[in-house]
Design a protein around this nucleic acid. Structure first.
Lengths: 279, 279
DNA sequence: TCTTGTGAATGTTTTCACAGCC
DNA sequence: GGCTGTGAAAACATTCACAAGA
């Protein structure tokens, strides 16, 4: 989740909360925004996409049940999430798609453009710079940066690449709000510092490092290796469960054992360490 | 994760939990694995990376405080997370780096190889297929798929691209455990079905759709648009807070407003938008 | 009758704080 | 003295279940 986020959450994985509560009574307006749980924010974005899909099909009204199915959550959760942003439904009927889209966009701050800078124009950077869904939703790519002089000036996805040494001034000039770090781990912290110096307050980090930032800068992290390892964990868990199940069956005297060679655990710590060496 | 898993993102962001508890008494072995919270699993992967870094610098021992700093979490959380996998520290001293690496790898199932298939060899697919940190950590890329006949047979990152029509048999043959979907939203569900039919039980989905899968298949989602929108939300929240702060100052009669052009806070939404304009 | 919106209940995760051990 | 491991408390998130309103 995320550095902050991230989850993160989530998520989620991600979603490290961690903001301090002011001692005084919270004013209503501030309270409203602060009160939306991080996890709910992430889902609002998902609902928004589902709603856009419905709007494209000229659906004008949707019930919490229908929308919940489209978004892959249960309807109680969906209603609770929507309740954080206000009461825009009609009892007995459902929600007006257009209204809900408008309100979610407002809540997520999508009524304003957020200029994006992508740093590190390697494979991933290219992919991001060319990513269509990016600018289409109010996130215009305003700058690209790389270290490689051969790349500087070359347009990628329509924007010429700038040299990373100019990151502070270019970000400042073009009013970049969101920086996307797609560099190797090595240079990521330095890049991050440059972005922050250039006035960027939100960072999406694809580099496998924990970034150090001032507390008013928001970082979200997307980490391939972590995602893969989480999946790996679930494979392992399932296997272990199956093995336990099997074992119990055997103990119970009911032999449903494997026809061919058994699912064995390979040898312990050494193999693990060898793997690390390689990375 | 979020996911999940979540979530990170959170967490997650991600990290939808949702597994049912079996009614019977849990056998110890099964219990051990099930008992690790999803959020903790994601962090274990982060600790592992930090530990690998330490190992590379020939550090042999680390305290929970040091490791926590390296991983960007607080030390109580780290100790709690480690306690889920067992007691491998020494009071008054800390943890042996090598031991911890071994235990985390074992827990995450990294002592076994997990063959990966990447589907959709566009910009992102290319990036993934070439991603070095991928195979290096026990996740060899075993297959690539695309729809485009011009791409079929072309090697990308050393592996020739197969046609997507062959996805079921190729996945089966090469014993793919993890499928990575890097296609447009359009074909993603179909691809997913193919992977599942080919015996894949873990999916990392980059396509902006909610995938429908049997309950024994684990899906994690990485969603650019959602991440960007979460960041956007935080920009909006900060601005709103700043506006509220300013408003309160004015109401309190303490004028700390901007020197040029009044820092006024006229009614609600409009003013918020104007302010947004300025930032 | 149908569906929203929401308190209350439940479940999960984080944080605290300190006993136990080196 | 220092640091781990962990119960217990607090914070956070999800689910239930139903009153209120169209």
């Amino acid at each position: 989740m995320t550095a902050h986020g991230a989850d993160v959450q989530g998520g989620d994985g991600q979603a490290e909360a961690g903001s301090k509560q002011s001692a005084i009574e919270v004013p209503a307006a501030r309270e409203r925004a602060r009160a939306i749980p991080e996890a709910a924010v992430a889902r609002l974005a998902v609902y928004l996409r589902a709603l856009s899909g419905l709007a494209d099909q000229n659906v004008t009204t949707v019930s919490s049940d229908e929308l919940a199915v489209a978004a892959g959550v249960n309807s109680a959760k969906l209603r609770k999430d929507l309740s954080y942003i206000g009461s825009y439904g009609t009892r007995g009927v459902g929600y007006e798609v257009a209204v809900l889209i408008g309100q979610i966009e407002r809540t997520l701050g999508l009524t304003r453009k957020h200029s994006v800078a992508v740093v590190g124009i390697g494979n991933l950077g290219h992919a991001l710079a060319n990513y269509g869904g990016f600018p289409s939703r109010g996130f215009p790519v305003a700058a690209l940066f790389d270290l490689d002089p051969d790349l500087v000036g070359v347009p990628v996805g329509g924007i010429p690449v700038s040299h990373i040494d100019d990151i502070v001034e270019v970000c400042d000039e073009r009013e970049v709000t969101i920086g996307v770090i797609a560099t190797p781990a090595k240079g990521a912290q330095e890049v991050c510092d440059g972005l922050v110096a250039g006035g960027v307050t939100c960072i999406l980090n694809f580099a496998p490092v924990v970034l150090q930032v001032p507390e008013d800068v928001e970082v979200r992290k997307v980490d391939l290796a972590v995602e893969m390892q989480i999946l790996s964990f679930h494979v392992a868990r399932r296997q272990q469960e199956a093995a336990t199940e099997l074992h119990r069956s055997n103990v119970d005297g009911v032999n449903i054992g494997p026809p061919g060679g058994g699912g064995q655990m390979p040898g312990e710590v050494e193999s693990a360490n060898r793997m690390v060496e390689r990375l």
